[in-house]
């Protein structure tokens, strides 16, 4: 299995642990990732707020590069995953958008037919590789580890079709295959605050704090995410937690947990790059760390 790989800015920046663990896990599953040549920022939510046709053009350049390579495009960052899908869809659904985008791309020597398949690693791992293979690859099951599966917004909504938009279960099934206990988590697709933590920290931090408090209430040892911004928001604002008792909750990427279960060394998984340390709870639950 081979994919064009679109890391996006976050995985090259603060979301480094996601990239490290993703690459390690994919390698273990014999999936080849080839980073897209001279990719550019997808535009995220911010670019769309300023200029829509430039936003579509920006994202479409990546799609055009990937189309030439013919492999499916793997986009682990939730925002990139959404923006790339949206761009592809709107180019197809709105001929005027398509016309403007194609015309602009031509200035860089690109052409885009619209055939690129955009995939999220969670979908690929569970639905292409399959849970049987995952189970066979597991060396140290995450027995006794209680996990709140947090999907966030943009992987499951609104364009992805591999799971329910409000009540997804794909990651739940993956975590179970890793041997972990999945706690009931009613907030699994509620917003973490997105970029509001950076712009209106009081509001943004409150949203992610609500997610943490509820995960704790439901008995979770840690929360697992599949988006670098969710990870950042959940991990970084726990000192802003309101309420009488101090709560901390380790946050992980789902790929880090896969790596642990596959018996990979913590150095390959970026486990030390968390503000809320993750190792103590792993030790407490006697999760074997290679």
């Amino acid at each position: 299995m081979k994919f064009s790989y679109f890391p996006g800015c976050s995985l090259k920046g603060m979301g480094g642990a996601y990239e490290t663990s993703l690459i390690a896990v994919m390698e273990a599953l014999s999936v080849q990732l080839e980073e897209l040549d001279d990719w550019n920022c997808c535009g995220a939510t911010a670019y769309m707020s300023v200029d829509e046709s430039k936003a579509f053009t920006l994202a479409a350049r990546n799609l055009a590069i990937a189309e030439k390579k013919t492999d499916d495009l793997l986009a682990p960052c939730a925002a990139c995953f959404l923006v790339l899908q949206k761009t592809q869809k709107y180019i197809k659904d709105y001929p005027e958008v398509g016309r403007v985008v194609r015309e602009s791309l031509r200035a860089g020597g690109y052409d885009y037919a619209g055939s690129t398949r955009i995939r999220h690693p969670l979908d690929v791992i569970v639905n292409d590789i399959g849970l049987d293979t995952i189970k066979k690859t597991v060396k140290h099951p995450l027995k006794g580890l209680k996990i709140a599966p947090y999907y966030g917004c943009q992987v499951v909504r609104p364009y992805a079709t591999f799971d329910h938009q409000d009540y997804p279960v794909t990651m739940d099934n993956l975590l179970k295959a890793l041997g972990a206990d999945v706690v009931h988590y009613p907030l699994k697709t509620k917003c973490c605050g997105g970029s509001l933590t950076g712009t209106l920290p009081e509001v943004g931090a409150r949203l992610s704090n609500i997610l943490i408090r509820e995960a704790k209430r439901q008995g979770a040892d840690l929360i697992t995410t599949l988006c670098p911004l969710c990870f950042f928001n959940l991990d970084s604002y726990q000192d802003k937690m309101e309420g009488p008792e101090k709560i901390t909750m380790p946050i992980t990427y789902f790929t880090q947990l896969m790596g642990l279960a596959f018996g990979m060394p913590s150095s390959k998984l970026g486990l030390k790059r968390h503000i809320i340390p993750i190792l103590p709870i792993l030790k407490e639950r006697q999760v074997a760390i290679a």
Partner: peptide, 16 residues
């Protein structure tokens, strides 16, 4: 590596 190429594309895109 070549941000100027992207700029060229973006500039070709008509302002909204």
């Amino acid at each position: 590596k070549h941000p100027e190429e992207l700029r060229r594309i973006l500039d070709a895109s008509p302002a909204q």
